[in-house]
């Protein structure tokens, strides 16, 4: 078990600075999810923690120990790659066993640990196969198995589920949550997927262009995004970001309102709008509208509400759920 701490980490490739100056604490035993747009430096950060990249300056501490100059294998970490990175020429068992063999752990104990991992991940029947003979989900499990047998203090995952189909992704997500509960190690997890971030994380780190925009529990980011960027990034469908004029406030640059926090009425309301496209999802209905003088507004309604494209309606945002952002793009202290 170990806390991971990054202190003033800078990472540049040649004269391209990917991470300018980053400070982050990942609490012991937490499930921390890194999210952010493509190319913002999530993988680079994860690889820096792993020791596959050396920070240009700054320190990486794991369990209070400065490991900045340590080899990856001496950091007590393990990593699951997006591509799984299984050895095609080895069987599942040999893949899982590889690190233990290198560490010269006695055969009996190795066998025991591999068996345990195989049991946790339901791989017992596949130990003699090669990765090429497995399905995507099974390969993913082998990659996880390879990392748990070494009993690392910190697990690193770089988009581990992105190569799986939707159904399998949901299943593996649940399995990962269970794994975290049962082995109780620190986990740092990179993803593009909103749902993975919201459901798995104790703590979400939103990154943008190598900087941290906000760190906090999922609901805190959802309820009180500190910047316009976080507001637009967390939640699906995206939060509506409208000019301050929408609520007649000059000091507000942007006002944010989530699609689920807008009331729709046929007779009257704050904003007149016309329905463009309606998506019926069953439990929800998502309506894409254009409000007069404001632009696009997305609204989420209960599934039983029937709207037609082209319909003229009135929208009223819930006052208590407005998010106000000042001229600097940051959340304004006062409520609306």
């Amino acid at each position: 078990m170990a806390e991971v701490r990054l202190q003033n980490v800078n990472k540049s490739f040649g004269n391209v600075t990917v991470i300018p100056d980053l400070n982050l604490t990942v609490p012991d035993g937490s499930f921390t999810v890194l999210v952010g747009p493509s190319g913002c430096g999530k993988s680079t950060l994860l690889r820096t923690i792993a020791g596959l990249e050396m920070p240009t300056s700054g320190q990486v501490l794991i369990g209070g120990e400065d490991v900045t100059l340590q080899e990856p294998s001496n950091r007590g970490i393990s990593m699951v790659f997006q591509s799984y990175a299984l050895y095609p020429h080895m069987t599942v068992e040999q893949n899982i066993d590889f690190g233990l063999r290198l560490a010269k752990i006695p055969a009996a104990e190795r066998k025991e640990r591999v068996a345990e991992a195989a049991r946790i991940l339901a791989l017992q029947d596949h130990l003699d196969r090669r990765p090429g003979q497995l399905s995507g989900g099974q390969r993913q499990r082998v990659a996880i198995g390879r990392s748990i047998v070494r009993h690392p203090k910190v697990f690193l995952f770089d988009e581990p589920l992105s190569n799986l189909d939707a159904a399998l992704r949901t299943q593996m997500r649940v399995e990962l949550a269970q794994l975290h509960q049962s082995i109780d190690a620190t986990m740092i997890y990179v993803t593009h997927d909103q749902v993975e971030a919201m459901t798995l994380a104790d703590q979400i780190v939103v990154m943008n262009a190598g900087r941290i925009e906000q760190v906090g529990p999922p609901m805190e980011l959802y309820e009180a995004p500190q910047t316009e960027f976080v507001a637009s990034f967390i939640g699906s469908p995206k939060m509506n970001l409208l000019p301050g004029s929408a609520i007649a406030r000059d000091d507000v640059r942007t006002v944010g309102i989530r699609p689920e926090h807008i009331l729709v009425d046929r007779t009257g309301g704050d904003w007149a709008a016309r329905t463009q496209v309606v998506e019926t999802l069953g439990a929800d209905t998502i309506a894409y509208m254009v409000a007069d003088g404001l632009g696009d507004v997305t609204v989420r309604l209960p599934g039983h509400v029937r709207l037609k494209a082209g319909e003229q309606l009135y929208l009223t945002p819930e006052r208590q759920n407005l998010h106000l952002f000042g001229q600097d793009g940051r959340r304004m202290k006062e409520a609306a």
Binding site: L52, M79, L102, R146
Partner: peptide, 13 residues
Amino acid sequence: PEDLVEAARIEGA
């Protein structure tokens, strides 16, 4: 794939 080499490094090779 470079991943394989990196995975091996992490495993202590």
